[in-house]
Computed example of a mutant assay.
Amino acid sequence: MQNLYPEIKPYARHELAVEEPHVLYVDESGIPDGLPVVFIHGGPGAGCDSLSRRFFNPNQYRIVTFDQRGSGRSTPYASLENNTTWHLVEDLERIREHLGIDKWVLFGGSWGSTLALAYAQKHPERVLGLILRGIFLCRQQDFDWFYQEGASRMFPDFWQDYIAPIPQEERGNLMQAFYKRLTGSDEIAQMHAAKAWSCWEGRTATLRPNPQVVERFHERALAIARIECHYFINHAFLESDQLLRDMHKIAHLPGTIVHGRYDVICPLDNAWALHQSWPNSELQIIRDAGHAASEAGIADALVRAADDLVQRLLDLPPEEA
């Protein structure tokens, strides 16, 4: 099994002011003249970490990672102001222009796959190819499955902890009930709701229980819960089935789709539907994995996809890629 590449430190860091009040944290690693790739994190609200750089050969890629509005080291933390899908699409363009990159590879998982598709469909001329994991099409059925009823029947024990902050009379619309608390003035109720929301996601993200994954969600609870709920209650600021509808705009681009067969957060039908709408894509169904990029089979497939793409785009001999 292909291991992740070793941990590396960025060779450059940037603070990029975009629409007020937001300042984005951006860093670069690998080699400056390598194939540009941008890592688009999930959530929205999760932020990047040292793992984000480890899917790419640092001797071949110029690796760009950044924290989206309100996430990670970007400021202000957990802010919902001027924070929509289309703000993030234009943030990607600002980053690309700021770094002097003509075209780049998009690498995104979960919500990162959503944002990568939205960006590619808006700016196809700036994309060399896509590597996507844990596809999330942001259809109403996808929101309902995980946040109202569906996954609840597979994890009734975890579900009870998720709905605990919400009174019985408000459980007919859980997302609305969480949104009220996550955006309210009661800070104790806000954090209680944030932890319940984020831990539900963390506990269901892997096929086998992984306390480290749960802890990462717990540490970022406020940003993940507030920003995710803000996006999802607004249908991710997308029209119905927009991402599938507009796949013809990027049908010519090469893409690899990696998806765990037992992904409970974003069921496999998301990836299947995308693949059917994208003739130039390759779908890899990982038989022993759920949703998380850190699961061995998914990490292995992502590293291999990045290795294969750099070889194709730079036309390198296999031993040099």
Rank of each mutant, 00 (worst) to 15 (best):
F146R: 00
A299H: 10
Y147Q: 11
I31A: 00
L238Y: 08
Y11S: 06
L238Q: 11
R261C: 12
D142Q: 03
N280E: 08
Q168M: 09
D269C: 15
L316V: 01
L238V: 05
R153S: 09
L132M: 05
M247F: 03
D308W: 15
R216K: 12
L268P: 07
R304Y: 02
Y162D: 00
P165H: 10
R304S: 07
G172H: 13
E187T: 15
Q160F: 05
W197A: 02
F66T: 04
G297L: 12
Q190T: 12
S277R: 13
I8D: 03
R312G: 01
G297R: 12
E93P: 04
E295N: 07
D27H: 11
L222I: 12
D241W: 06
E320F: 05
I135R: 01
L283T: 09
R216M: 08
P165G: 10
D308V: 11
S240Q: 14
V303G: 01
A289T: 08
R133M: 06
L128Q: 07
V127T: 10
N83Q: 10
E215H: 11
A46D: 03
V303N: 01
E320S: 07
H87I: 02
T75S: 08
C199G: 02
F39V: 14
E28K: 01
D91A: 04
S152A: 13
F55D: 00
M191R: 15
L244H: 10
L316P: 00
Q60S: 06
D157C: 05
K195S: 13
N210C: 03
V127W: 00
G255L: 05
L244Q: 11
R69V: 03
E319L: 02
T206V: 05
P279M: 03
Q160E: 15
K9R: 12
L182Y: 09
V89A: 02
H230I: 04
G108W: 01
L314K: 15
T206H: 10
Y61M: 02
F56P: 00
V38C: 10
D269E: 13
V38S: 05
F39Q: 03
Y162H: 02
G184H: 11
R245W: 09
I101Y: 04
R126M: 09
N3G: 07
A189K: 14
L16F: 08
W200H: 04
L207P: 07
R126E: 08
G72E: 06
E170S: 13
L314W: 10
P76R: 01
P32H: 03
D288Y: 06
H87D: 10
V18M: 02
F178R: 06
D67P: 13
W145F: 15
S152I: 03
Q121S: 04
A299G: 14
D315T: 12
K103W: 00
L4S: 07
F56W: 02
L174K: 14
D186M: 05
L182N: 09
Y25Q: 05
N210A: 08
P254R: 04
C138N: 15
E215K: 15
I31D: 01
F237G: 07
A271Y: 08
A189D: 13
S240A: 10
S198A: 15
M175R: 14
D288K: 15
T85Q: 06
C138S: 14
L117S: 07
G112R: 03
H230T: 04
Y231D: 07
I8N: 04
I135D: 00
A118K: 10
W272Y: 10
Q190L: 13
S79P: 08
R139A: 07
W104K: 00
